[in-house]
Design a protein around this nucleic acid. Structure first.
Lengths: 182, 182
DNA sequence: TATATAATATATTAGTCTGATATATTGGTC
DNA sequence: GACCAATATATCAGACTAATATATTATATA
């Protein structure tokens, strides 16, 4: 098994827990996986068709609903494929922050403009941290309901620790830039 | 000016500071920008040709060298383009960690395997932190040499704070998983 | 000195993913 | 009744990666 096409694995991971439509998969990625993963419809829908063709998932239409709803279910082969992938070593962890890129070139734009980029970053971080703190609370409240919750919580704790560090850095970075500006 | 093709801006940012070949640009990205940006030759070389075609950079052959060396220099239009881009708001900061993805699906693989993924992540983080601490030291030693160094240092400080937080999380995450495993 | 290996240097391609767009339905609000 | 937001699937141009090809030069080692 080559360690490839991450989308397949993400989808199988989500389907492992519950049946989903492509639209619902996108929603899960945009909420539960938000701060460490993303995906567009342009990769989700083709990947779903591909999974069905390879026998890793099945597709059925939702009768009883007027919407053009297509529900996907993982197969046993799909579960095996997922487990094989989980056992493989991690290939890549990537951080790609345009904010840091603009900061790196800060000498070309000056302290003031750089500080305003940091301000935006700080505000965004604060909002996302707030969201994660709420997620932490609700996960802790229902930790025993589902063995998976413990693992979800771990990713949330990662986010909280990371964002805390970001906010600390924002404060210090701005201080350093302001001292020099005067 | 549409806020697009990040590669162009990265290259212009680097060329703003010094003349470079495509190969050297790749090296800069792999070292100075390493932990917050990456790029492949497949995007660098075409982007360089494109920049020349648009008049944002010029290309000349390195005579006096047997190697097929092509040196790129930023133009005034290139500098203006860079400054316009720097003034625009940041479009996207993205974190894409396969480690967290496998962690999120941890319930399908169990605590032991999850811990081993964390171990690998911890080791990798420790190594990169070591590298950043050395970079911090040498930047602090020559801070006054170049106004740009202050900005480089800020990105390094960001990395150090972040990686410190990662290591703290690794410890706590493993403790939580081990307690439950016994 | 010969030879292997690592580093330098440019270039291209298959395959993957994003961001945008198109289309259509359903539910709620004013 | 009109409007908007959310639901739902699908496609495509353009961007980027990982891999590969090719060739030269510097360095270590036997």
């Amino acid at each position: 098994m080559a360690n490839e096409k991450k989308m397949d694995c993400v989808i199988l991971g989500l389907l492992c827990h519950e049946e989903l439509t492509g639209y619902e998969i996108k929603k899960r990625i945009n909420t539960a996986l938000k701060f460490f993963w993303s995906a567009s419809y342009g990769s989700i829908y083709p990947a779903l068709n591909d999974l069905v063709n390879r026998g890793l998932a099945t597709k059925r239409e939702d009768t009883g609903n007027k919407r053009n709803k297509l529900i996907y279910t993982i197969t046993d082969e799909g579960r095996n494929y997922l487990k094989e992938w989980l056992a493989l070593p991690v290939e890549k962890d990537e951080l790609r922050y345009e904010t840091l890129l603009k900061l790196f070139f800060g000498n070309e734009q000056g302290a003031e403009q750089t500080i305003s980029h940091i301000d935006v970053f700080e505000e965004k971080t604060r909002k996302e941290l707030q969201y994660l703190l709420e997620a932490e609370k609700s996960l802790k409240d229902c930790l025993s309901d589902d063995g998976a919750h413990k693992y979800y919580l771990l990713t949330v704790e990662f986010g909280i620790k990371t964002y805390d560090a970001y906010l600390e850095w924002c404060k210090e970075a701005k201080k350093l830039l302001m001292d020099n500006g005067e």
